[in-house]
Write a protein that binds this DNA or RNA. Structure first.
Lengths: 244, 244
DNA sequence: TGACTATATTGGTCTGACCAAATTGGTCCT
DNA sequence: AGGACCAATTTGGTCAGACCAATATAGTCA
């Protein structure tokens, strides 16, 4: 029951932060430029300084503004934190295909990393377990949702073997920022059957032999296919929107 | 003049956030447990509710607490955001060697990614520029600081060619959280001369041929050497501390 | 014992005030 | 005119006390 909650997304603070965030990310202020004072912002939003301050603290933690006695200033985007990614993506609907592409590239690369590292560390028993999951992945080949779940389980399993906290945290952020959002777009990559079979075969063989490199390669291939598919789907949507 | 500033690290809000963050990361509260109320915290810190609220908003954005009407609750660490990494590392001095190792592993992997991608996209002219930077890297071989600077410049250059915003943002976070901190520890990896020469030679050759894979491999080797060195240095410090 | 309800508690927001630091604009000297 | 200096204003940082709505809790009743 309490799975999706976060700092109530329905508070004034949250809304003000969202408005300002959007304005800043859209580039309505130049880097180094000063934001209106807290008092002025409070007036603008028919709110109070306290709430505005909380909103500003939010943005400061995203690394897009710099609060200092004397004034709040815009920070150049290159110095922002990872957490702006999701917001950057939500700026447009559908999101910028290039951004999606970059995102999936990194996501894939990290998956590859996890896989390789996990298999190097895995016990024979764990390798067997992993092969189970691959078999399950194969069985779910006909439904996207089932496959997506199986896929996630496999990667989660690798992650749990790898036990790299850094990787896990980056994964959290990226997933929170992106994966769920792409899913709500309703893009359901329907993988080519031959590609799918190849992936499963390679992966199973790699796990049987404990060949980390081969497994990593398989994951890389799979990620690339997925990426190309998703990006072209997003691009198509953008086209459709431009046409209408 | 304005390079290292961030939300004034010398404010009450900041201090309170730091204290609570440390307590939470040290595990003094169980996941799901309730934090004292804002009013109680204000009393405890001889402060006001407003300030406490700002501090709490901070922690909520790190993903370590969940603020809800009715009470503030602790979130399990697995669901936290990347931004806690730095704080996790500052928890102990010297930091946990295993964490450092994991960190450098990811950092290296991302550097490799950037390098490969950059060289694939690079124009002949850019490749030449990169070779300049490698030459500079070679010239600085005797001083750590100079070499570190040259090294950074080279990677920055690759990053600017790659133009992958996602990668850049992750890099920002990781650097902010870690690299600078490791530097303040005063650990100055003194690379073996043969390793250094090998790196420079391979890298230069790769750039001359535009061989992305070879360049990536060289970076990987270099990262691995650095990592092993730093981790063992950190471990040594920990030992020394245990002994005393 | 379990479902329900009233009360106390908690976060969300507002107001208005004071302080210290930074900005700004004017002044004075060169 | 140009630059250094200084005072007034603006800005963020903090505090106190108040009200509301949602939640949690304890007490009550079936």
């Amino acid at each position: 029951m309490n799975s999706r909650v976060m700092t109530t997304p329905t508070s004034l603070t949250y809304e003000i932060a969202a408005v300002l965030r959007t304005e800043i990310l859209r580039g309505q202020y130049r880097p180094g430029e000063r934001l209106p004072s807290e008092r002025d912002l409070a007036v603008r939003f028919h709110s109070s300084r306290g709430v505005v301050r909380e909103a500003l603290t939010n943005l400061a933690q995203l690394g897009i503004i710099d609060i200092q006695p004397g004034g709040v200033r815009i920070v150049p985007r290159e110095r922002a934190h990872l957490s702006i990614l999701g917001h950057l993506m939500k700026l447009d609907n559908p999101p910028d295909p290039q951004l999606v592409d970059q995102f999936l590239q990194i996501f894939g690369a990290l998956s590859v990393l996890t896989t390789r590292s996990a298999i190097q560390k895995a016990s024979p028993d764990q390798l067997t377990q992993a092969r189970e999951l691959v078999a399950e992945l194969d069985r779910q080949a006909n439904s996207f949702d089932g496959m997506h779940r199986a896929w996630r389980e496999l990667l989660e399993f690798f992650k749990s073997i790898d036990k790299n906290l850094v990787l896990q945290l980056i994964g959290n952020d990226l997933k929170a920022q992106f994966v769920d959002q792409i899913l709500t777009l309703g893009i359901k990559p329907d993988l080519d059957e031959t590609v799918h079979n190849m992936l499963v075969k390679d992966l199973d063989e790699a796990l049987r032999l404990g060949d980390a490199q081969q497994a990593a390669d398989a994951i890389q291939d799979y990620s690339d296919h997925m990426r190309v598919f998703v990006v072209s789907a997003v691009t198509a949507r953008q086209q459709r929107k431009v046409d209408s």
